[in-house]
């Protein structure tokens, strides 16, 4: 199967972690960018098309859940995978109710992360397909009623 590159944004206040994860995911054939806080995340979303955001729940300043809500406001079709330290599993589940795709406990197994990234990418792609078809239908309806 041909690998479809995923546009990934990594958001975590641990810089070394972001750097390593970016390198590894890029090595897998994806387009990866890393930022270190919620504001950086929202700025990046304005500038580029991101398929999946990998988001740390516990960050100083704007925390994960706040950032998640902003992402869903700004770019609702972008998928979000939450990274949690232990005690915030309940928060991760809350996050899923707020629209996050899934979550992983830190330190996350790389293979698992890859699986979830691919699944998230697929879901977004499917949704975008549906949107395109719906737009086409809407266009037809406007012009075609002849």
């Amino acid at each position: 199967m041909v690998k479809i590159p995923i546009n990934i944004l990594i958001v975590d206040d641990e810089e070394d972690f972001v750097e390593m994860l970016c390198l590894r995911l890029q090595d897998q054939g994806n387009n990866v960018k890393g930022v270190h806080d919620g504001r950086g995340c929202l700025r990046a979303l304005e500038e580029e098309d991101v398929d999946v955001v990998v988001l740390d729940i516990k960050m100083p300043g704007m925390d994960g859940i706040e950032t998640l809500q902003e992402i869903k406001r700004q770019a609702p079709i972008t998928e979000v995978i939450l990274l949690t330290g232990h005690g915030s599993i309940e928060t991760a589940v809350d996050g899923m109710k707020l629209g996050a795709f899934d979550y992983l406990r830190k330190p996350a197994a790389f293979e698992e992360l890859l699986e979830k990234l691919e699944a998230a990418r697929e879901r977004k792609a499917d949704q975008e397909d549906r949107i395109r078809r719906a737009e086409a239908q809407a266009l037809l309806r406007r012009t075609g009623d002849v």
């Binding site: 641990e14 972690f17 330290g85 830190k106 330190p107 790389f110």
Partner: peptide, 24 residues
């Protein structure tokens, strides 16, 4: 213990990624 464990999870994640990267 839980405070320590919490703090240690972050560097652990980094070690894991960095080692994984070397493996790659």
């Amino acid at each position: 213990a839980s405070g320590v464990a919490h703090e240690i999870n972050n560097p652990l994640a980094i070690i894991q990624e960095a080692a994984g990267w070397i493996g790659n």
